[in-house]
């Protein structure tokens, strides 16, 4: 399968990329790791006139700490996120979720920022970023702005990043010594999540002191479940107590219906997977 022809540019600076993007107008498309965009182009579901490849902008790649935050450059490959010691130490939920993305070859090319801006409702990273209270740094012609995770995911495949803007990095408050799990339910290898659950917890004296829970593919955007986070506080690490605290996780959700399952099946899965994620994390 061959994409429709396009003009290609590979800027080496962010400023250059922003100019190219502005010049391309509505017909421009940013290429990050390409592991979602290239299949879409090959299937001719999209036919941008101009493709602007961010792969040669070194400044967009890398993981660093900045005070009490971990910062992941938008063009950092999944493999690097999944194996980086800073992520393991301060954002282990992100490491857990990233390890489940697609397969090794795709994790070598696909990028953290690319997956987040793509905002596939079945993608694994949006829920993890939401649970981590991530803040998104977006640059456009008017300068830089920041958007909290709760406002970043707007709808199916739609984020707060405008047509003429680029996501540069994602900052997350360190959750050092928190424990995490990402439960992903699929039928076969490398399938998209039918449902996924991101859980990260701070445990004190054998009880849950703080919790963050977010769901993948239970709606058009990832869903943070604060009622369950509250219910988990003070909970002992014990199956019955955790099952009670997480039982309502799917309440009020409107998950999609497809060949993999109807909404009731997904609500059931979300409940089971949340219990497992919390128990596994703890």
């Amino acid at each position: 399968m061959i994409p429709v022809a396009f003009d290609y540019s590979a800027p080496t600076t962010l400023d250059e990329a922003l100019t190219l993007l502005a010049d391309a107008g509505e017909d421009g498309k940013i290429l990050a790791g390409g592991q979602s965009l290239i299949p879409v182009l090959k299937l001719r579901l999209a036919a941008p006139h101009a493709v602007i490849d961010l792969g040669r902008i070194d400044a967009l790649r890398g993981i660093r700490e900045d005070g009490d935050h971990v910062v992941i450059g938008a063009m950092t490959q999944h493999h690097d996120v999944a194996t980086h010691p800073l992520v393991a130490e301060h954002a282990n939920l992100i490491a857990r979720a990233t390890q489940t993305v697609a397969d090794p070859q795709i994790r070598h090319r696909g990028t953290f920022g690319g997956a987040l801006v793509h905002a596939d409702p079945a993608g694994d990273l949006p829920a993890a970023a939401l649970a981590m209270d991530a803040v998104f740094h977006i640059v456009g012609p008017g300068g830089e702005r920041t958007v909290a995770a709760a406002d970043f995911f707007v709808d199916l495949f739609t984020t707060a990043v405008g047509d003429n803007e680029i996501l540069t990095e994602v900052r997350m408050p360190k959750k050092t010594a928190w424990v995490s799990d990402y439960q992903k339910f699929t039928r076969v290898a490398q399938q998209w999540s039918i449902v996924g659950v991101a859980a990260t917890l701070r445990i004190e004296n054998g009880r849950i002191a703080e919790a963050r829970i977010a769901l993948t593919n239970m709606g058009s955007v990832p869903i943070r479940v604060q009622a369950v986070e509250q219910a988990l506080i003070g909970c002992a690490i014990e199956e019955d107590a955790i099952a009670r605290a997480t039982a309502s996780v799917a309440d009020g959700t409107n998950p999609p219906s497809d060949l993999n399952g109807d909404p009731d099946y997904r609500r059931h899965l979300a409940t089971v997977l949340t219990r497992r994620a919390v128990l596994n994390a703890a």
């Binding site: 390409g34 592991q35 299949p39 490849d53 090794p104 070859q105 070598h108 090319r109």
Partner: peptide
Amino acid sequence: TSNCGACTVHLDGVSVKSCTMFAV
């Protein structure tokens, strides 16, 4: 469609799917 891996090659020593990458 980047599922099967038959096109796997190494790019700078790491495995990638060459059907999901442009030559450029």
